[in-house]
Nucleic acid binder design. Structure first.
Lengths: 220, 220
DNA sequence: TCCTGTGAAACGGTTCACAGCC
DNA sequence: GGCTGTGAACCGTTTCACAGGA
């Protein structure tokens, strides 16, 4: 647990919000890579998304010193660093469980492949879907989960299944070797601590929004 | 801005994370409503999702005293309070902009309607889609946005459109009277302060996950 | 006794302000 | 002069611990 012996790599626990911002900075940098300038200031990077220059510098300084004082950050260089930090230098093998509408939306999402995620398999429990093709991927039965994860040495599993079965599927995926889970079901998954879970809950977002709108209605 | 004259209603600014947890408590309560007990302790409410009993009590106490000491919270009563707080006692009229895959997934999402959100209109800029029907809803052209929002007195607008046009569409929606925006585009929208925006960014979530997995790989 | 409601302490993340390098 | 990197101050959130009512 002691990190004092580590070199330039991660010195302490990085917060979730920091990571989300890094992802945002990377998007901004990729726009810049296309459109010209070779150098960018923390001020400019912050301007794109909704943060401050100080926040940008703090975030980046947790991982190293990527900028030059008086000059700014090298666009391409910083981009490469961020991709490395976020683990985007490699491709990730992803298994999609649930070939419903959310599943199909994700499967066809262009940024998905572009950003390094390869959907190597799709599973569903509906016999009518099993055996059909999505592009070059054959939809297999939910009972094949363990086989598929091992076969492909899948890294990530996306759960686009009903809440009732999500916990069970997650356990099976982890047992078969999945290293991370993106969960669209509206339940809190219980998995071992070494398996990160990211939750996307549409209803929760919508409710946060209607609360906020209600507040505005009262306050003003 | 001073709230000292208000009665039992919101005393101070409520954090986003609090709201997300309330939404979670509500889900747990709705399960309980079905399956039996009429009373629940903060301990039990916390157990379902991933928080602590103290957190549950702190969250709830910001809105009032809903429990009975020594006994716990009344399941139905607390559920009603939470629905009221989250603004779920009414139905929300929602306009969906973008009839692509994400749009169609949302449109068909059963919890959507069940939780009080009515998709009153769907818009798309693709002439091939305009004029077709989704269930009982006719898809209209993107140029009708202002008309549609006014016609229906829409509350919320869901942006399931490419990032390049999201800002423009958001501005038009706000100008036409939209009160809140759920944004699926990977851009930070600039809208007036009185219009809450909730962002859902799949790539960001995926990148947060691959970062976390990468960390586990290093750390352990 | 049991469990809520809540001040107070602890924690962590953000903002400030400036030293240091280009 | 300009802009980064970073300790220190600040502030909001979470956790603790206990007083108080059922």
């Amino acid at each position: 647990m002691d990190v004092s012996s580590q070199g330039p790599s991660v010195p302490r626990r990085i917060s979730d919000s920091t990571i989300r911002r890094l992802s945002q900075y990377l998007r901004a940098l990729e726009d810049l890579e296309r459109s010209g300038p070779t150098t960018v200031s923390s001020e400019e990077l912050a301007g794109g998304g909704g943060t401050t220059a100080a926040q940008v510098r703090k975030d980046l300084s947790q991982f190293g010193s990527f900028g030059k004082r008086g000059l700014g950050y090298n666009v391409a260089g910083l981009g490469a660093h961020l991709r490395s930090i976020l683990g985007l230098e490699r491709r990730w093998r992803v298994v999609l469980v649930g070939a419903g509408r959310i599943g199909s939306a994700l499967f066809a999402y262009p940024n998905f492949t572009r950003r390094g995620y390869d959907c190597v398999a799709v599973l569903d429990s509906d016999p009518a879907k099993v055996g059909t093709q999505w592009g070059s991927v054959l939809i297999r039965g939910a009972e094949d989960l363990e086989d598929v994860v091992r076969e492909w040495e899948a890294d990530l599993v996306i759960l686009a299944v009903p809440g009732e079965v999500a916990q069970r599927v997650a356990e099976r995926a982890v047992a078969a070797g999945a290293k991370g889970i993106l969960n669209f079901a509206a339940v809190t998954l219980r998995v071992p601590h070494h398996v990160p879970v990211t939750n996307v809950n549409l209803v929760m977002e919508l409710e946060a929004l209607s609360f906020a709108v209600t507040q505005v209605g009262k306050g003003a």
